[in-house]
Design a protein around this nucleic acid. Sequence first.
DNA 1: CTTATTGCAAACGTTTTGCACGTTT
DNA 2: AAACGTGCAAAACGTTTGCAATAAG
Lengths: 163, 163
Amino acid sequence: MQTEYKIETEFKCFVDYRTLLLDFKKIIKNNKLKFTRQREQILRELFSLRTHITPEELYQKIHDSYPKSKTGIATVYRTLLLLEKENFVTAIVSEKDAKRYELASKAHHDHIICKSCGLIVEFSNDDVEKIQEITANSLGFKVVGHSMQIFGICQKCQEKDNL
Amino acid sequence: MQTEYKIETEFKCFVDYRTLLLDFKKIIKNNKLKFTRQREQILRELFSLRTHITPEELYQKIHDSYPKSKTGIATVYRTLLLLEKENFVTAIVSEKDAKRYELASKAHHDHIICKSCGLIVEFSNDDVEKIQEITANSLGFKVVGHSMQIFGICQKCQEKDNL
DNA sequence: CTTATTGCAAACGTTTTGCACGTTT
DNA sequence: AAACGTGCAAAACGTTTGCAATAAG
């Protein structure tokens, strides 16, 4: 495992696309990268969708939105990795299927996932953040972040199962 | 996604191997399965290791412990799936590399993971269990379980990085 | 003797990579 | 012009599966 890591201090909140784009271009410039059509399409699509999406799904959506686009799946993966590194998106690893990405939002939040239909609902809880601090400190760790998933059966699926 | 799921009620605690084996044989009998050399080797290895291990690592360990064993990797995967279904092991999905399994223990616990060296330390916190209940209830979910990972930098890696 | 399990290799789905070609700066 | 990004196809990775052979009940 490589020794590079990032302290989770910087949270981004993108209310409008213009701000997002500006922020992104700043990162691009700072890292001597290039602002390409593909990167913009991916960012715009992520912004307008605002869901937990897999790279494959995102790739499909881009081809729906930009029918002539030749953006390859590899580029989607590469861009998501860049966006994750720069805290523009966060990832949740699903048990089933692929990693899911979502645009970073102001406050950290966690997820409750329906075991039956896969529905993902966000929640946030200040106590979780406190537990994170207390636990890490008591074990000598410097906190980077955390991820919590509650698994359950959503209301709809409970009703479905009771038939 | 299939509609089958399991309520996380049954926790096992294996202090000695004999008890573990007896419990396992009971499950085998109840489900009209067969008690094979491979299944026993896998169980014994999990018991003596008591770490968070990947299927691949477990496969290697078995071949170290039983040099003449021809146990295939597919059998390791299949057995781990069975053990997980029957609550003999629990799995944590790592960001990097493969799923890691550990023998089930009496109490639920979560993990803090070093981003630098991959060290996994267990912790348990009653508040996490409460948060799980409260959150699920408020969102209309029936709780199945949860998984929480804190990411951080362990003491050793912090020192290493300060050189 | 019936049924479940195994090992193997092939298939799978997701993700990464090497490379020649294109695009951005 | 230099440097970086791209698409493609191939490879890599962890995992599952079909099947004929084997072992357990």
